[in-house]
Design a protein around this nucleic acid. Structure first.
Lengths: 143, 143
DNA sequence: CTGAGTGCAAACAGTTTGCATTACT
DNA sequence: AGTAATGCAAACTGTTTGCACTCAG
């Protein structure tokens, strides 16, 4: 079981949530993802594994998990919301979205993080998080 | 008439679109916005001015305008998509979104732009644009 | 045993689309 | 006159909600 699944289960328990089968299943699928997935993606994976979970349950689980800070939600405006496991150590990445095929991939950039960190101090909001999305053409679509 | 409205009208004409009243009205409302608005916001403003325009028409106009690069669309996942005039000179800003009240405000940061510029060269996508969203609590909600 | 959690289906909200009508060019 | 553009209403899509049932604690 991945670190994230472990920690997330503990977070849920500590917050007083019950360890139900369906929610656990959602957490496990999320734990195996390296990048973003939609609610439907999760449902599909679970169906293939023979442990069907209703979409409503998946949305409810994602809601709880993002509220607890264990998953990060991303909206790129192509229909459905994207979700990914959020890692506790502050380590996180951002996304490249292909305008043509909708493909999403990840990148990290410490320099960018630093610029955002400095910026966060300058503004009048109490900044809790941030998303950066670069849009353009993915290598496959360029070719 | 603002610069942006002027330039946008020309862009539309050059691209072969007709100068219809309803679309012109949408462009004018957009031209008066300093930051983001929803399709419904535009409809409301127009209704107040007594020049009702159907929502479908507004969506169609926004679609054309963003395809032409004259408006920038932003998805922050609070229901509806946000739109704002895109300025030709490359000058643009990013957004602070309040988690509690949904308020959206703008900021500019050349240092951040530079970091993104450098980054764009390093990745394997052909980067055409970017969005940065900082999330947190707005001054009013903090108090 | 009690209520959090679930699944289903119905309800919703934003957006898109088909089609008859209007109005630029 | 010809055709892009509009308005309306119906269709769609992703997400949320109400409710009876189930199961973890």
């Amino acid at each position: 079981m991945s670190d994230w699944v472990q920690r997330t289960s503990e977070t849920l328990e500590r917050a007083g949530y019950r360890a139900s089968g369906p929610r656990r299943a959602v957490v496990e699928v999320l734990g195996r993802q390296r990048c973003v997935v939609t609610a439907r993606d999760i449902a599909d994976v679970l169906r293939e594994e023979g442990r069907d979970v209703g979409l409503a349950t998946i949305y409810r689980a994602l809601d709880v998990l993002s509220r607890l800070g264990s998953v990060q939600r991303l909206d790129v405006g192509e229909g459905s919301a994207l979700y990914e496991p959020a890692h506790a150590n502050g380590e996180h990445h951002h996304h490249l979205v292909c305008d043509r095929c909708g493909d999403v991939s990840a990148f990290e950039d410490p320099q960018l993080e630093r610029a955002i960190g400095r910026l966060a101090q300058r503004v009048d909001y109490q900044v809790a998080g941030h998303d950066v999305v670069l849009r353009g053409a993915c290598p496959r679509c360029v070719a």
